[in-house]
Design a protein around this nucleic acid. Structure first.
Lengths: 133, 133
DNA sequence: CCACCAATTGACAATGATTCTCACTTTCAT
DNA sequence: ATGAAAGTGAGAATCATTGTCAATTGGTGG
């Protein structure tokens, strides 16, 4: 028996996954799968587009990165802190600030409960133009 | 000179636009353009898909309907009250409750201001499973 | 060290919502 | 009625995302 029997199947550390993680580490704002694919191609560490999509979704499912829908409807990804938070995003340069709002969290919970809704999830994003834009 | 010189060009009341508005009036939850197109086709008031998209966007721009992105990434539309509000949506049956949260509104404003962001917009939706599902 | 097998990859096709095109139709003020 | 402008729609085009499947790879037991 191995020493990982009790763990969920972990992804293998492949060249491709390391390359994608590296791109996310260097970016300080949200990036789309297509952008990441292009960065890798330009840098010589070419990775298949399917793999980029698969990896980003896996990382998002594992809670390692945050996903949000850009105003254009594209899914964009970013490495974030692990605690629950929301984003304040500059619609011009993409600069992102992580924000927390305990009051909002409890408000959504009580709102949902008041109307009998269960298994709550919520999305809250703030878009604006940052000071330097 | 006409008596509408000072108005923005208003959309003409065509059969198609009336049919689309009628579908929205009857629905009490969010509908996609494709769904509306299908309902019209089934009801005999067939309307071109392009027209459905165009009309929905125009109505959304005019503030006559609310738009939100379903969890599947599709744009869905619904006739709503004119005051600013958010939605509590059942992810199973689509039942929608309009909710208001003055505290959340002021919180987003102050958060944005605190970080120097201007021209603020925000999205907040709550998804859950309603009591009857 | 090696063979083996499941996880992984990637080129390419397929999907599906949305947008674009453009010739034809309708509306409406005169 | 009539001409110009607004509106329409069938079909093509776009574009992000997902599916397919044969070839590759990592790591494990022997």
């Amino acid at each position: 028996m191995t020493n990982t029997d009790h763990l969920e199947t972990l992804p293998r550390p492949t060249r491709q996954r390391r390359a994608i993680a590296a791109v996310l580490d260097q970016a300080d704002d949200f990036r789309s799968a297509q952008e990441i694919h292009e960065v890798l191609r330009a840098g010589g560490d070419s990775v298949g587009l399917s793999t980029v999509y698969r990896t980003l979704q896996a990382m998002a499912d594992a809670g390692q990165i945050d996903v949000l829908r850009s105003e254009a409807g594209e899914s964009v990804y970013r490495r974030c802190s692990t605690t629950h938070h929301h984003h304040l995003v500059c619609r011009s340069c993409g600069a992102t600030v992580e924000i927390e709002g305990p009051a909002v969290e409890s408000w959504t919970r009580s709102m949902a409960a008041h109307h009998g809704y269960r298994d709550i999830a919520h999305t809250l994003e703030i878009f604006g133009t940052c000071a330097s834009c």
